[in-house]
Each structure stands twice: as C-alpha cells, then as structure tokens.
Design a protein around this nucleic acid. Structure first.
Length: 473
RNA sequence: GGUCCCGUCGUCCAGCGGUCUAGGACGCCGGCCUUUCAAGCCGGAAACGCGGGUUCGAAUCCCGUCGGGACUGCCA
C-alpha cells in the first residue's frame, strides 16, 4: 500500500517552525517510502483564514525545499485540497452520522454546557464527563458525535507506542456548528478518510484529540490511519514554542539570513538523528534513513545558536560563485541600493575570505561595507583602542611611504612591503596593521587586511590612510 | 482539578540488559595558529531526577515518587 501523508496548515497565520518541522517529517516519511505527500489547507475557521496566509505558507514550505505531490498549486485527484470548498461534504457526513445514530443535535447553551463541565470538575472528574447526549431529543443546533462508553479507545502510536483513553474522559464533541460549518475535527477526519491518508504525523499537542478522530473515523465505517505524535518544539523556557520566544515564523529566519538547507538540516535533527553521530547531513541522507518510528518522544528546545553555527557550516560549504550570488541581494539590501559592476569586482576580491567568516548572510554585508561606501565615522571603540596609542602617526607615515613602493596593486605586493615594517619599527605586527585596518575599513574587524586593501584599490586606500593620519594631528 | 504525554551533559542527538571509566554536536573554558575577526587543530569541564524492585548484571525492564509539558471551546 502506498504511504500517503499530509501537511494540513491552517492559513490563520504565518508558518510556524513547529509546523514546518512536522511537515518536514511527513515529507521525509513520504520520500523514504516512495509515498505521496499531500498539502491540504485546513481553513474551516473562516473568520481567521486568509488567502494571503495560505500563499505565504505555501511559499515558505517551497522555500524549505518541501515539494508536494497533491494539493494547492499542483492539483490532484481530490479537488482543491481546501476545506472551505468541501463544506457540503462535511455537512453530508455529519447528517449521515445523525441518521446512523452516531451523532445528535444539541442546542444547549454554552452556560448549560459550562455548568456540566464545572460539575464534573467539582466531582474530581474530567470536564468531558457529562458532555453527553441529553435526555430530550433535539432537531436543531450543533451536531455532536456520541462517544461509545463501552470500551477504552486504544491505538498504537508510531512514536509513543500504545496509547489508551477511557471513553468517559472524551466528551461528545461538536462536529458541525449550529451555523452549519464543520469543526476542525470533522473536516480533518473526513479529509483523512477521503484522501486515503495512511499515516498522520502531527504535533503532540493534538494527542488528546486523537481518540475523537478515531471514534469519528470508525463511525464512518473506516479504519483510522496510523498515528505518530511528534514531540513539541520548546522555547528556551521549556514551554511550547510561541511568539513570545522571539522568532517562530519560518519567514523570520529566512529574513535573518538563514539558508533553507541549514534550517532543513537543523529541524531534521530536532527529535530525530541520522545515526547519533552525524550532525550535518544532506536531504538525501535524511530521506534514506528516516523513519517515524525513530523519532524521539521528548520535546526539543529550539536553539538559535546551534542553527546559526549550522548555517555557517552551510555557507562555508558552498562554492564561492554560489556564495556571491546568494549574498549579493543581502549586500544591496544593507546598502539600500544596487551595487555597480565595478563595486562588485571589488567585493569578489575578498568574497572567499568573507564567506569563511559569514554565519548569517547579513554579516557579509556588514563586514564589507567599507568597500561600497566612504567612511563617514570611525567605530568609536576601535578608534579608542587602536588609534589613540603612541606611535600610531609614525606607523601610518611609514605605511604610506612603504605603499609608495608597491608596483602592481595586489595583495601579495602590498603584503611584501608592509611586512617589513614591524621589524623596522620594532613593533608587533598587530600594532602596525591594526591602525591601517581602522584607517581603511573604519573599524577593527574586517576581512584580512592586505586583500581588503587590494580590493579597495590604491587610490581609495591611500586616501583613507592619509585622512586617518590627518585626524591624528 | 481531570486526562494524556515526557524525564541522558546548559542545549540537540546517540544508547534499546553486559563492550558505559555513558558517545557525537552546539555552547562554554584553556591552548595552538594568527594582521583583526572568523575558520581550523588540540585539550578540558559538563548528564543517566529520586526511591524501590526484577536480574549474576540496569541509563536500558517493572513499580512508585518527584518534576516538566500538552490538552481540557460550537479555535485549529
């Protein structure tokens, strides 16, 4: 039987990294098993769902590199893959369930319902306890599914093993609202049946809803899919990752300069591992090794530090041409304008050196800013630390002299001349080179000095050193 | 309150009864390299929540306990 899994985002907000990770695991499982990865839009909440969010979510998973076989944009044998287009179907199922005795109408007020829940809690019972079919038969209102009270609801979860719920702890939940719209439980379950989903891998936060979905599926005379409840992603405070932990939207990571490959790798390693030893691995390796049964059971803390390290690993692993191509928009973004061809050539002198030093794409823009704009102000700390020391003026004078002897303006020639100075001046190398760095780049952290000077060009370099010398008086 | 889930270094991941004096990675600390910053290399500190069992033997199995989390809507 072909494995069919799905990602079912609600377009009520941007794509959360937790949702992205669940999607990733589903995708890996599909690809590992030569199965089908379905994307379905769970937009039963008509109030909050928007087309914009839907597009943004689809863009985000595309960016992550997760392609889907059926769903919006690609089509498939099951219609639009959008729940808002299937309300008739859900209503039909709900009414069939009423007819078959599995469900019933309920027009009790929320006050009445609350009272029942409070009574149960007061008696030390689950609030679900008394939410049952009322004595008096109704013919309108919401439709609730009746939970048979005769046997526990047991299932084998791929990651958690056997999980069991007592029926009295599961309330007769609403499947169709009184306005005729389906709840998530109904739509999701009907779709899983209709789309022939074989495995449902989703966040552990909906584990308590799973018995409902199982009862509902069985009431429809189908067998439920295999479930796998994935551990949640936590923020650094040990709570479910949410907005208050900073960036939770995948798009925020994209905007911060993370690479999709790095995010993919990092997310894949949260709750799963290739072999216990290997941290950096390719999509292909992950596909070859992945199994939902190997996913860990405990929640994982999302660690931006490690993600950043991993991003640096991926940046360093790129070939330089691709790095240049990738980083160019970030440089232009940093400058607020496009760069000229001439400027770009300057950058390319140091691109490989910059690449090694970049963990997040915007860092490359910062560290090379001096190549694109004139220095309007020196970094105050750098100036204080480097330029206010004795002998700096002399150093710069000697540097300017030495630079006069440089014939062809390339880093090797520059280095050859400047290398002589520390010994001649009886100073440490950094005492000589740091002032030059501050003069040329405006700060104390930059790509290697001689290459930076070569990239900047003779004229600008000399001009900047003279200017800094002038500032010293 | 109830139900369910979870519990190995600060963090992520290994470990599925003996090979664990518990392994890999991030981070941290120290060193080397060095024109700054990175990178790289070398070294270090750092964990089986606790208590009982079972067993010749337990991080691994069982029970309890403590701790954490999720859910508890006519949201998803």
């Amino acid at each position: 039987m072909t494995v069919r899994v799905r990602m079912a985002p609600s377009p009520t907000g941007v794509l959360h990294v937790g949702t992205a990770r669940a999607a990733l695991f589903n995708w890996l499982y599909a690809r590992h098993n030569d199965g089908v990865f379905v994307v379905r839009i769970d937009d039963t909440d008509l109030e909050r769902s928007t087309k914009e969010y839907e597009e943004e979510i689809l863009d985000a998973i595309t960016w992550l590199g997760l392609d889907w076989d059926e769903g919006p944009r690609v089509g498939g044998p099951h219609g639009t893959y959008r729940q808002s287009d299937r309300f008739d179907r859900y209503r039909e199922v709900a009414h069939q369930l009423v007819e078959s005795g599995h469900a019933y109408f309920d027009d009790r007020s929320s006050e009445e319902l609350d009272e029942l829940r409070q009574r149960a809690v007061a008696e030390g019972k689950n609030p679900a306890h008394y939410i049952r079919r009322p004595e008096r038969e109704r013919t309108e209102g919401a439709i609730r599914l009746s939970i048979p009270q005769d046997a526990p609801i047991v299932f084998d979860d791929l990651v958690r093993g056997t999980v069991s719920f007592e029926p009295e702890d599961v309330d007769d939940f609403v499947i169709l609202r009184s306005d005729g719209t389906p709840t998530y439980h109904l739509a999701s379950t009907v779709d899983d049946v209709d789309y022939e989903i074989t495995h449902v891998a989703r966040g552990e936060d909906i584990l308590p809803s799973t018995p409902k979905h199982i009862v509902l599926t069985r009431a429809m005379s189908f067998t439920e899919p295999v479930y796998a409840h994935l551990p949640l992603l936590f923020g650094t405070d040990g709570k479910k990752l949410s907005k208050r932990h900073g960036a939770t939207a995948l798009s925020e990571y994209r905007e911060a300069g993370f690479l999709p490959e790095a995010i993919f790798n990092y997310l894949a390693n949260l709750g799963w591992s290739l072999d216990g030893e290997t941290t950096i691995f390719t999509r292909e390796q992950a596909i070859a090794a992945f199994d939902l049964a190997d996913v860990s059971r405990h929640p994982a803390t999302f660690d931006p530090e490690k993600l950043t390290w991993m991003n640096g690993e991926y940046i360093r692993a790129m070939d330089t041409a691709r790095f240049e191509e990738t980083v160019r928009p970030w440089i232009e973004k940093g400058l607020g304008r496009e760069v000229t061809d001439e400027e770009w050539e300057r950058f390319r002198h140091v691109s490989a050196l910059v690449q090694e030093r970049t963990r997040l794409l915007p860092e490359a823009a910062e560290i090379t800013r001096f190549l694109f704009v004139d220095i309007d102000a020196y970094d105050p700390q750098a100036w204080e630390k480097v330029m206010t020391k004795d002998g700096v003026a002399t150093v710069l004078d000697r540097v300017l002299e030495a630079l006069d002897s440089v014939g062809s303006w390339d880093h090797a020639a520059i280095e050859e001349e400047l290398r002589k100075l520390p010994e001649q001046l009886g100073m440490g190398a950094s005492k000589v080179f740091q002032p030059v760095r501050v003069a040329v780049t405006g700060t104390s952290v930059s790509p290697p000095l001689f290459e930076s000077m070569a990239a900047l060009g003779r004229e600008k370099t000399l001009e900047r050193i003279r200017r800094a010398r002038g500032e010293l008086g």
